[in-house]
Nucleic acid binder design. Structure first.
Length: 699
RNA sequence: GACUGCUUAGCUCAGUUGGCUAGAGCGUCACAUUGACAUUGUGAAGGUCGGGGGUUCAAGUCCCUCAGCAGUCACCA
């Protein structure tokens, strides 16, 4: 044995060895209890980051359960990640001076496909480097033909049950990315804006002053609203206002949602470009003139057409000011909705989209949680999950991006009706004609992700699905509780009438030393693969877990990884000591009473440790279990027992050495889920390179 | 504004149902040593457990309150 543990070449050899042995090739064995985890599919649009390294929790569970005699399956999958990937790809295009508009739909799709295939290859290699015991033979991709078929079936079922419908309403639209988003994907941004007080002329003479942050939407106004009990305006309700610049007549109406204290208490209503105004227009049966296009430019105003929104605002103000209709302008803090991808302001625009009627699904999902059919760890997230179900609103699943699963819905132009067909229909299912046209849109990525646990297992085989579903644990970051976990429960139960997983285990985010979330744009990321190259995968893995609390955010200083690298070396050297001592001459002499006592003490402590270890593992206290072994191996076994027994061992007392060896090997097994490489490497030193620690059960 | 966390050693964090002198890793200081390991060993210093109040024989742990930080949601004309 080398004096130092050298992870680099050893890890490479062991990864290949494990894979060759097929330890983690899942199969159906009805004699054994199944334990399955579906890997949250990484987006196939870039390399791994530390967030992915947190999946080490899953590897710990899988290896532990395997060594407890379960039949395990850790399913590897990758996500096409619709808009995310298209966004990343467009950035690549931009570097080459191109844009998505330079290609037709099929070409663009094919180009992104190639890009994604390349990334998939990279990610697989990186996960191997981390020692993940995934089943590499059953990889799934969200765009696999049979997965898409499942997604289509689900859409069909939802459609047939009238849980999916098409509606024309306002959507959050990014004019830069060229797609709408669901409410969940919208980001808030605080902005130091301005509040403009505009004087709207009354038909009967005089003015009513409205306060607005968006003067440029004046052209789309259909009413001025005041509170029904506002004494200042009571006499004006029902009066008419003449919109400046376009001389359009609109009414003054009463609306109890108007806040009398805000601004002047009079609000302009622009239904096509404001969510609340849209609702008002529907109850008052008002029209909603669209004055901003999907290209982000003004239209149908007759005044500022073709200008972008900001330019139109300035131009409009200039014109109003010339007419002395700008009363005053105040600084005003406001929160604007921005695109979570490109950061640009989102435009509420009216568009027809597919929606999932969420209430029945969310109510059912909530019942599953409250009935304890799915338990959440850490427990505190249970409440959050229940609230998520309470607050869920209908889900817009239409996206105007090329990269995704095309929605299998067809429009009958003659009957003006939609129908769903999982295969391209030979004729229109409504009118039997030939004019049915497929929806251009693709599904929200999360729509396919929501089906991931059953879509993957069902497409492997009915046996696999039957045996491994519901999966045992869904381990993922708490930040995707709402977009992913909640939706998996809703759609999963709808489609399978079972929960998709029995337990949700949530991990926190890895932050930098300043406590800031790591992100590429902030440049504060630690590259996990760089750490693996420097200190070994075991060191990184253990550092992510050690001294943390499950579900809390963690900070990962490089020092900590170094510390764990040192621990790996300690493990190695304990083995080296025992191994080299075995070579020395063995004399079977009786141990003296002091040494006998020490051995008994060792055995007793070992027993206690094993018991504690399993208790903590059972409670998902992974950090605690790791610390137990760390403390015992290093500070008890190495620092105390070895030192105490050294003299006896040197004089050839075999009982002492074999007792140490026994305790050591048991600890290796317990440590293996955390630090698979070094434990396996030492195991093989003692048992041969064709043997594996994985084949043994943890006592 | 609502909900959920967090605030414990210089730094990063544990502390499970309240119970013996409050722990770990890293760092610091002193000493030891090349005999498995300097990616080492032994020992030490260092904390009024965010402030205040309460319950209890006993509170870092439970309750109230205040402050700071973080996250999620709602509002935002």
């Amino acid at each position: 044995m080398e004096k130092k543990y050298t992870p680099l070449e050893i890890e490479k050899r062991l990864s290949t060895f494990w894979e060759k042995k097929g330890f983690f090739h899942a199969s159906v064995d009805r004699e054994k209890q199944p334990f399955s985890i579906i890997l949250p599919p990484p987006n196939a649009n870039g390399a791994m980051h530390l967030g992915h390294a947190m999946f080490v929790y899953e590897d710990i569970m899988i290896r532990y359960q395997k060594m407890q005699g379960k039949q395990v399956f850790w399913l590897l999958g990758l996500d096409h990640a619709g808009i995310e990937t298209q966004f990343v790809f467009e950035k690549h295009l931009k570097k080459q001076g191109k844009s998505r508009f330079d290609y037709d739909r099929d070409t663009l799709y094919q180009m992104i496909w190639d890009f994604v295939m390349q990334n998939k290859h990279v990610i697989r290699g990186q996960m191997r480097q981390l020692g993940f015991s995934l089943d590499w033979t059953k990889e799934k991709f969200t765009l696999d033909e049979n997965v898409v078929a499942v997604v289509y079936q689900t859409f069909q079922d939802l459609f047939d049950r009238q849980l999916v419908y098409r509606a024309h309403r306002l959507v959050n639209y990014c004019t830069h990315c060229g797609t709408s988003f669901s409410d969940i994907e919208v980001a808030d941004k605080e902005n130091e804006g301005l509040l403009y007080y505009l004087k709207y002329p009354l038909k009967t003479g005089g003015f009513i002053t409205v306060a607005t942050t968006r003067p440029e939407t004046l052209y789309g106004d259909v009413a001025v609203m005041v509170h029904p009990q506002d004494k200042r305006y009571l006499h004006l309700i029902g009066e008419r206002v003449i919109l400046p610049l376009i001389h359009k007549e609109i009414p003054i109406i009463a609306n109890e949602h108007v806040d009398r204290k805000f601004g002047t208490g009079a609000v302009k209503a622009t239904p096509a470009h404001d969510f609340e105004d849209f609702a008002v227009a529907q109850t008052h049966k008002l029209s909603y003139p669209v004055i901003i296009g999907f290209d982000g430019k003004m239209q149908n105003t007759g005044v500022v057409d073709g200008l972008r929104v900001n330019a139109a605002r300035e131009e409009t103000l200039k014109k109003l000011d010339a007419l002395h209709l700008v009363d005053k302008i105040q600084p005003h803090k406001l929160v604007i909705k921005v695109c979570y991808r490109c950061g640009r302001t989102l435009e509420p625009l009216p568009k027809e989209q597919w929606y999932i009627k969420i209430r029945p699904l969310a109510d059912q999902a909530k019942r599953l949680i409250t009935a304890g059919q799915i338990s959440v760890y850490p427990k505190r997230f249970t409440k959050q999950l229940i609230r998520i179900f309470d607050d869920f609103i209908d889900w817009n699943i239409s996206r105007q991006v090329v990269w995704g699963i095309r929605i299998p819905a067809y429009f009958c132009a003659s009957q003006k009706k939609w129908f769903v067909s999982q295969k391209p229909p030979s004729k229109c299912q409504i009118c039997a004609g030939q004019d049915a046209k497929q929806d251009e849109d693709t599904f929200d990525t999360w729509f396919s992700s929501a089906q991931w646990p059953f879509a993957t297992l069902q497409t492997i085989s009915p046996e696999f699905y039957q045996y491994y579903y519901p999966t045992s644990v869904m381990e993922t970051g708490y930040e995707i509780l709402r977009p992913w976990v909640a939706r998996m429960i809703m759609i999963g139960y709808f489609s399978t009438k079972q929960v998709p997983f029995r337990k949700v285990f949530l991990h926190g985010m890895v932050r930098d030393k300043q406590g800031v979330k790591m992100s590429k744009s902030k440049g504060n990321v630690i590259d996990p693969l760089k750490m693996v190259a420097l200190y070994g995968a075991d060191a990184l893995r253990a550092a992510l877990i050690f001294g943390t609390k499950e579900g809390n955010d963690t900070v990962l200083p490089e020092d900590k990884i170094v510390g764990m690298r040192n621990f790996a070396n300690k493990i190695w050297n304990i083995g080296r000591y025992i191994k080299s001592s075995q070579k020395s001459k063995i004399k079977s002499q009786k141990l003296d009473s002091t040494n006998l006592k020490i051995l008994q003490q060792l055995q007793k402590e070992q027993k206690q440790l094993e018991k504690k270890y399993h208790t903590e593992m059972g409670k998902y206290h992974f950090a605690k279990a790791l610390e137990l072994i760390y403390q015992f191996l290093w500070h008890q076994l190495a620092d105390y027992y070895i030192e105490q027994l050294k003299e006896a061992i040197r004089s050839g007392k075999i009982e002492a050495l074999s007792a140490l060896k026994k305790a050591y090997l048991e600890n290796l097994k317990m440590l293996h889920p955390y630090m698979p490489f070094v434990t396996e490497a030492v195991w093989q030193v003692f048992h041969g390179e064709d043997k594996s620690i994985i084949e043994n059960s943890i006592s």
